[in-house]
């Protein structure tokens, strides 16, 4: 078994993903625009009362972040599946665990991280109390990484299917439940003036578990999809 040193491979893989993304810069903005668009819908749907919005803000922000990540995850492997780079990746002597991890990391850098960075802006629009902002950003930082990892499992399993879009929501949203509960829980606690540390620690635990296990499931999913395709 010969293999290149793992770290250079991981960084080469990551650089390639980011280079590809930056050749289509508008697509990076899509999840953010989606985020803003849906945030706009809530005041229109439930009324502009600042107190009511402030009460719902943690839940709204977290649900929208969740849907934005899910939508972006759906197409994570699609182009690579269609142009054959995925099957070539499976034939490389490199550990598929690392390749999958780098795909997810690139995905998170392009969706989860920007969402986290712009979230305070949307939080202000939804009247979230300012003391809750650090908890919001920290919970999104940890939580969106879990969402990317878990969402990629769904993307890997459905990449070869013609009607993957709705199916991935059905497969993955149930797995998002704990992240949503603890993510919005953290923000709610902070908004009431309590410490959100316990919830953030739980999210950190979920992230470690997801990093350890999810790439194996993604790798298995990709092998199955290439095989059936």
């Amino acid at each position: 078994m010969s293999g290149a040193p793992l770290l250079p491979f991981l960084s080469a893989c990551l650089r390639r993903q980011l280079l590809l993304a930056f050749r289509r810069p508008l697509e990076i903005a899509n999840p953010l625009l989606f985020f803003l668009l849906v945030v706009m819908l809530f005041p229109l749907g439930i009324g502009p009362d600042p107190r009511q919005l402030a009460e719902f803000a943690p839940g709204i922000l977290w649900i929208v972040a969740l849907l934005a990540t899910l939508l972006a995850a759906e197409s994570l492997f699609r182009v690579d599946f269609e142009d054959g780079t995925l099957e070539q990746l499976l034939l490389t002597p490199q550990p598929l665990y690392l390749s999958c991890l780098s795909y997810v990391l690139a995905h998170w850098l392009l969706t989860g991280l920007p969402l986290t960075l712009v979230a305070p802006l949307f939080a202000v629009m939804l009247q979230l109390p300012p003391p809750a902002l650090p908890a919001l950003m920290l919970s999104l930082l940890l939580g969106t990484a879990v969402l990317s990892l878990v969402g990629s499992i769904g993307a890997a399993l459905t990449v070869g299917l013609k009607r993957g879009g709705l199916l991935i929501s059905l497969l993955i949203i149930p797995f998002y439940v704990p992240v949503l509960i603890f993510g919005s829980g953290a923000v709610q606690f902070a908004a009431l003036g309590n410490s959100a540390q316990p919830q953030l620690l739980v999210l950190g635990g979920m992230l470690s578990l997801a990093i350890a296990l999810a790439p194996f499931a993604i790798a298995a999913g990709l092998r199955i999809s290439v095989d059936a395709g």
């Binding site: 499992i153 999809s225 059936a228």
Partner: peptide
């Protein structure tokens, strides 16, 4: 392939 995919999904579950 369907069975393998479902097996992976249920293990994740």
């Amino acid at each position: 392939a369907a069975a393998r995919a479902c097996a992976v999904l249920s293990l994740v579950g």
